[in-house]
Design a protein around this nucleic acid. Structure first.
Lengths: 132, 132
DNA sequence: TTAATTGCAAAACTTTTGCAACGCT
DNA sequence: AGCGTTGCAAAAGTTTTGCAATTAA
C-alpha cells in the first residue's frame, strides 16, 4: 500500500529539502513550490506535496499545522517550539529549552502512551506589536 | 466589514453550541454538522461553519488545528491542553495544570508579545496502545 | 532492468461566499 | 421595521491521486 519511502535521490527532492533547510520562514507548501520552481521550473504541486509527505513521514522535516487551510513546514526537525504571530501570520522559532517531564505527567494522568509534545505560542511579533 | 457577532439567538446557533458542549469527542465541523442535523434536518454546512467561526471569534469555543484538513472544536473554551492519538486520531483533554511562566519566558527571549500558548501531546490512547 | 518518482490533469475534500428569503429583537 | 442569520448553490483554496512517461539505482 504505502510506497517505499525516500529510496531514490531525485533533484526535486534534493531541492525541496535544501530550500526548506535554507529559509527560516517556515513556508507553506505553496511557498516551497514557489521556491523550488525557481530552481526547477518544471516542478509540479503534486511532486512538492508528495515529497513533503514523505520527508515528514521520514522525520526529516516538521509539519506545523496552523489555522484552517495550509500547513507550514520546518526544515529543522529537532525538538523546538514555535511562535505564531496573530497579525502577520508569520511563524518563528521560540528559542526556549524543552519543558521537562511534561510527557510523563500526562502519561501517568491519562494512562496513555505519550510520544512527544508540541508547544505553540501566540501573540504579536516585534514588528506587529509596535503597530497595534 | 465584519458582521456584528452573536447578536441574535437562533435555534441553529443554540443547537450547535449545545451539542459541542455536550459531547467530549472534539468533533470536526463535519461531525458537528451531523450532530446538528439530527435536531435540525434542514441545517446546512454554511450555517455550521459560519457559527463555528463566530463562536470561536467570540471565545465561546476552541478551534483545534490538527493535521492537513479539518479542524476540531471544543465546547470547553477554558485553558487546557490536548492529547492526539496517532492511531485512532481521536482527541482527548490532557488533564494537567497549566504550565506557568512559559509565556513570560518566550516574551523575554524573543521580545515578542505572547498572549497565550497551546500544548499538544501526541501518542497512543489507552485503547490503541494495547493494539500496537 | 525495474521500480520509485515525476508531470499532468482531474478529482477530492474542506471551507467560504453571494444572494434572496427568513425571522429575531 | 431593520438587519442579522439562514438555506442554497456555486466558488475558492488546498491536497490527493490515477496514469503514462521518466529516471535513479
Amino acid at each position: 500500500m504505502k510506497p517505499n519511502i525516500l529510496r531514490r535521490q531525485t533533484i526535486q527532492r534534493k531541492i525541496i529539502l535544501e530550500e526548506l533547510k535554507r529559509v527560516k520562514t517556515h513556508p507553506t507548501a505553496d511557498g516551497i513550490f514557489t521556491l523550488a520552481r525557481k530552481k526547477i521550473p518544471a516542478i509540479t504541486f503534486g511532486t512538492v506535496y508528495r515529497n513533503l509527505n514523505l520527508l515528514r513521514d521520514a522525520g526529516k522535516i516538521l509539519e506545523l499545522t496552523c489555522g484552517r487551510y495550509s500547513c507550514r513546514y520546518d526544515g529543522d526537525a529537532s525538538q523546538h517550539y514555535h511562535f505564531f504571530c496573530l497579525k502577520c501570520k508569520n511563524v518563528f522559532d521560540a528559542c526556549i529549552p524543552a519543558v521537562g517531564n511534561l510527557d510523563r505527567k500526562v502519561s501517568q494522568k491519562l494512562k496513555f502512551q505519550v510520544k512527544y509534545h508540541r508547544i505553540e505560542f501566540y501573540g504579536y511579533c516585534q514588528k506587529c506589536k509596535a503597530k497595534i
